[in-house]
């Protein structure tokens, strides 16, 4: 009888230890790229709302970073604000307030850039999200998805986007898209192909009232 109890106890302990390895729902990392080129700076109010939404939705333990897309985006200098929220809700709230203040400062002093290096921004985003070690990696690209590289910059290579979900937000239609809508389709298809080739997934959310779908809600 004692032996049976011992075996049962050991089995339960083993089960508990193996179960402890299960971390439950994974932490989430969101990296948001803001296009600051040309007239897209006029869309910053919408970007601000999206950031507020992200701050409301992210939980303790999650990570958030916002970076700008400029002439050369593959740089830590382009990260405007980044944070990994504390596990305690009260500290998380303070961090969210601090993040919000940083973003407000950035938007108020924003200057537009002449070029749009989306690929560089994506590489930087993947690097950041990999470093944070989060479970779910989401990259939000707030841009018209029209890449305009500085002369000499090389970006025509396969991206490593494994495990990343790229969501293009508020992809505005350019004047040329009005003339030929196929341009718009072609542009989006080009990005889809590149990201899926790198092992990631790609989707577009243009209706900013349905931001809940970012987190699959």
């Amino acid at each position: 009888m004692i032996r049976k109890i011992q075996i049962l106890g050991l089995s339960l302990a083993a089960l508990l230890f193996t179960a402890c390895g299960d971390s439950g729902p994974q932490t989430r990392g969101v990296y948001m790229l803001l296009d600051t080129s040309g007239t897209y700076t006029e869309e910053m109010d919408k970007a601000s709302n999206i950031i507020n939404f992200l701050l409301l939705k992210l939980n303790p333990g999650d990570s958030l970073a916002v970076a700008r897309i400029d002439s050369g985006s593959f740089s830590e200098k382009d990260i405007i604000a980044k944070v990994t929220f504390d596990t305690r809700p009260s500290v998380t709230n303070q961090q969210k307030r601090g993040f919000r203040e940083k973003m407000d400062d950035f938007i108020s002093g924003l200057k537009s850039s002449p070029y749009t290096d989306i690929t560089g921004g994506l590489i930087q985003a993947v690097e950041f999200l990999t470093e944070t070690g989060v479970g779910n990696k989401t990259i939000l690209v707030f841009s018209d998805m029209e890449e305009d590289l500085k002369k000499g910059h090389v970006r025509d290579f396969t991206l490593d986007m494994k495990g990343c979900e790229v969501i293009a937000l508020n992809v505005t239609k350019l004047r040329s898209d009005q003339v030929d809508p196929r341009e718009y389709m072609k542009r989006l298809e080009h990005w889809r192909a590149r990201i899926e080739e790198g092992g990631g997934t790609f989707r577009v959310i243009n209706d900013l009232d349905r931001l809940q779908s970012i987190f699959g809600e």
Binding site: A19, S23, P60, T87
Partner: peptide, 12 residues
């Protein structure tokens, strides 16, 4: 959550 954290999980 303030004491043991809000993002850790035990046995799911």
């Amino acid at each position: 959550q303030e004491m043991v954290g809000g993002s850790s999980y035990l046995a799911g």
